[in-house]
């Protein structure tokens, strides 16, 4: 939201007729470390998808398809829970990958 609404513009009582518009708010910049998905190691168990508190594991059909870096907060649960050997998710420092 670039411009703040005036009192004549705010919806009554602040009720939001929006469908999950929090998605427009990017929490990705909270990260200090980030997960990297290594597709060739992925066994498509979907655990990262089910365990991500930020719904930041992207999917396509029935498969994991990557990471939503706009929302991933870098908690590391996905990498920790990844059962593949070698792991399909690895945490790397945010700056290292830039």
């Amino acid at each position: 939201m670039s411009r703040l609404l005036s009192w004549k513009e705010v919806p009554v009582a602040g009720w939001l007729e929006k469908k999950g518009n929090a998605k427009e708010y990017e929490t990705g910049d909270w990260r200090t470390i980030k997960p990297v998905w290594i597709e060739k190691n992925c066994i498509q168990c979907l655990r990262c998808f089910v365990y991500c508190p930020d719904l930041a594991i992207l999917s396509q059909g029935e498969k994991v398809a990557g990471i939503d870096y706009q929302h991933c907060k870098g908690c590391g649960i996905c990498a920790n829970e990844c059962p593949s050997k070698p792991k399909a998710l690895e945490m790397v420092a945010e700056t290292d990958s830039e």
Partner: peptide, 25 residues
């Protein structure tokens, strides 16, 4: 068909506008 979020958190950036509108009603 059109979901609504009732009772959101409004902080110093919006609380006063919402209350001003309430006073107007």
């Amino acid at each position: 068909d059109s979901p609504v979020t009732v009772g959101p958190l409004a902080l110093y950036d919006y609380y006063m506008e919402i209350k001003r509108a309430q006073a107007e009603a």
